[in-house]
Amino acid sequence: MTPGFLGGTLCVWRRDMESWRKYWKASLVGALGEPILALVAIGYGLGRFVDIDPGGAGVGYAQFLAPGILASAAMNAASFEATFGSFTRMTEQKTYDAILATPIGIREIVAGDALWAATKATLSGTAVLLVAVAAGLVRSPAACLLPAVALVVGLVFATMGLVVASRAQAYDFFTYYFTLVIAVMYFFSGIFFPLASLPGWARAVAWCLPLTHAVALSRACAAGTVGGAALLHLGVLVFVLGTSYALAVRLVGRRLIV
């Protein structure tokens, strides 16, 4: 029986997973090392000089930082996989061409590749969560939702990465994306300081960045304040996901079917 959309998506996901299995150790060290270093060096190192909580509600800087680092770890893992990884499959290895000769179509290829990148994002996010829990930075039971948040954030950045990959002519192209888009989001999405400290216009720009909503959602789950605002952030992320998935399907199709 020819696989449908879901079956086809899982076939592509499985192909990616099986290809990665050999490299999982190296890959995990890369995916976990950076967020954990950021948490320790910035959270504890810099955190000693930062008074994030003038009101005195007992939120230390590391505690403030941890959910944001989790969201950014998910963003980075998904972005790398969906740009460098997917571009390799789309061009050099011609994996997409090989799959397209079968009943599996562009929609399943994009969905499967995005799901795989989001799987790596979930692994990264969960690892950060475990470290944060072990360090006593996260206590709310709602933190159990954080792996699912990492999955959603991963899907958002995976589909965005696939849009970029579909337009790339060479690997160098991704340097622009990572320095102009991903790095900007990393620093201005409320991971390191509360957005309230920004001037009004900058705050408005920051709320246009998908990572800002990812960080806010992650923080709400870590703090156990999951309510209407958190749902709104989730809604924005789902909207970005839907839009960039549709765009990625279109652009990858335009690149491969000519």
Binding site: M1, S19, K22, Q93, T95, D97, T102, P103
Partner: peptide, 27 residues
Amino acid sequence: GVAPQEENLDPDLTVAKNLLIYASYFG
């Protein structure tokens, strides 16, 4: 069945896995 001009096997999979994964695309 399509055998393309350019070899596009999955380099990180074994010979057997290449075929098994490809079979899954056909259900």
